[in-house]
Design a protein around this nucleic acid. Structure first.
Lengths: 328, 328
DNA sequence: TAGCCATGCCGGAACGTTCCGGCAATACGC
DNA sequence: GCGTATTGCCGGAACGTTCCGGCATGGCTA
């Protein structure tokens, strides 16, 4: 089932058949339709290898996720959003194994790369950026070297500010933030936003560092210390969503009612936040749309429909739940 | 940077260069080494499109995950295991978007498919099985139609039996199981194993149905009802790992000490089980290895190193933690 | 009517690889 | 020393597509 078969069925040459199906070249509308019909009839599928060879493009993009793959639901949904969007432009999405990059030959197999939440200490990122194909990052890359061709960013500072505003509106007077160290754009933005908010509102936000992939137990310990050491503490924002249950446990241990005595929120929405009891208020990064946006930007870049260096913004949404019902 | 350049550098023809690098044909060992050196020197990477065209194989396999993507960590790790193993055989792994299958043309782009935890009510599965390329399923497919070319299965019945044995050894006399309905091979095996164990040990295992992607809240409600309605209940096995925290909450509400008054375990290991306090005993399906095994089987099938219809087993391991420390 | 341009279609080459048939040159039998 | 295998290498075709140059045809202007 090749283009030649279609051409023969439609009574034209393979060149004309190709032109007709590609929409290129000068082809009479009647002929074009005839070829299309023949292709449909025969169930013709262009051979992607031949097309790739001729066009010298692979028709695929690569996806790189952080090694410390925490925030699982987030990345999973992001990946599915990206693959769906890529598909719409006829692009396959190939998953990059950690360790793939330095294996070499990668650039030969994909037309472009999606690098999500690039961490400064991920040794693969510089390699990917230098691979010669367009790269779109999800969130900014804080390391140096070759700049990515594009980025899709969330305004994480704004989302945390909004979260803190929300807590204040619900009666919180003394909030704290559990956040990872500033190794990623996301965490760095959160810390900066906390400092800003402290300045602007005159209310100090106590920041405590927890691991990027903090476990509930770690969050519990951190929260317990915070509760013990901070008189009047009445709200905790836990940046990594997976650790949220630990905050609730610590609250329960201290005899505090979550949502009343202690407000709790997370900077990433996920199963842990939604599944907790009470359910926890969180910032929804809308992962699937985020993935779509990244794939779309890369696709635009590849098609020349976006200029290299472009940065697009991605919206978030605050999901208010019982854990921040309010004091009283 | 083509094979031709390498050939010229090594002072041979492109045919000889190809033979030398592929290991095929009759080539003097000295020549072979000379060509290899030239290729290394020049950083030669074979053009995958040309190779695919010539060999009429794409060099990629597709991965299909369940739509209801719960057990996130599990699937994520499985996917990374698969991509890593595929890579070792020079295969790319392309992520299939839900909805991709019926889009058609899929079979033209991959040499084989990995279909993980095929659910009977997933409309894409029959399409994938009928796509004409070899398919390996992770766990069996309970629906009909074209049979897969291979499968990698876990002995879920044995793992639950082992878990129940463990609970009994730790003093449990009256265990219960929270499991999804029998729509997947996994859940069906668990239910059957519970029935078997009941017969063999003469100890009844109360089975209660929860959703496949049960939330902690749902597990909490189920556990509370179970505790209220089952005098002497002293152990709960929660099949879906994500729901485990709900069981712990219910226990706390009932004033039971987890690990002493009530033993708790899960049939899938994951962040929820590991991150809970106390940490929860669980069956580790070793997702990454599972993914590796699936990719390996497909690769073997493609290479003719495994016969169609083969079923391989995959080992699990019981991770004993504080939640089943023992009565007393 | 001669010259011209636009239109519609086609032939052929190229993309980089693999692999088959063939051709020297050497090795082996007697 | 001749005939026959065997070894080592090469030329060329093929995979299915895209795209450039070219060739009729026919309508237009002058």
């Amino acid at each position: 089932m090749t283009l030649f078969d279609v051409a023969r069925a439609a009574g034209v040459s393979k060149s004309t058949a190709s032109d007709a199906l590609q929409g290129s070249g000068r082809v009479a509308e009647a002929t074009r339709e005839r070829v299309r019909a023949a292709a449909r009839e025969l169930g013709y599928r262009p051979n992607s290898a031949a097309r790739s060879l001729r066009r010298s493009s692979t028709g695929a993009i690569g996806l790189h996720l952080p090694r410390t793959a925490t925030r699982l639901e987030y990345y999973m949904n992001l990946a599915f959003g990206a693959v769906e969007r890529a598909r719409e432009d006829g692009l396959d999405l190939v998953l990059l194994a950690p360790g793939t990059a330095s294996g070499g030959g990668l650039a030969a197999r994909v037309d472009g790369l999606l690098v999500i939440d690039p961490e400064v200490d991920d040794p693969e990122v510089p390699y990917l950026l230098g691979s010669g194909v367009p790269v779109v990052t999800g969130e900014r890359y804080l390391g140096g070297g070759v700049a990515p061709s594009g980025a899709v960013v969330c305004d994480n500072a704004a989302s945390l500010a909004s979260l803190l505003d929300h807590l204040a509106a619900r009666g919180a007077r003394r909030p704290a933030l559990l956040a990872p160290g500033p190794g990623s754009d996301w965490a760095a933005a959160l810390r900066a936003a906390a400092a800003d908010w402290t300045r602007q509102q005159g209310v100090e936000v106590t920041v405590r560092t927890v691991p990027f992939a903090a476990t509930p137990a770690e969050a519990e310990a951190a929260t317990a210390e915070l509760l013990a050491g901070t008189p009047g503490l009445d709200a905790v924002v836990c940046a990594p969503d997976g650790a949220v249950p630990g905050v609730l446990t610590a609250a329960a241990r201290a005899g505090l009612r979550v949502g009343a005595d202690l407000l709790v929120a997370a900077c990433v929405d996920g199963p842990a936040a939604r599944g907790a009891s009470p359910q926890v208020t969180a910032v929804d990064l809308r992962a699937a749309q985020y993935g779509r946006a990244c794939a779309e930007l890369l696709s635009d870049l590849l098609a020349g429909a976006a200029v290299p260096g472009v940065v697009r913004r991605h919206d978030w949404a605050l999901r208010v739940r019982a854990s921040t019902a309010g004091h009283g």
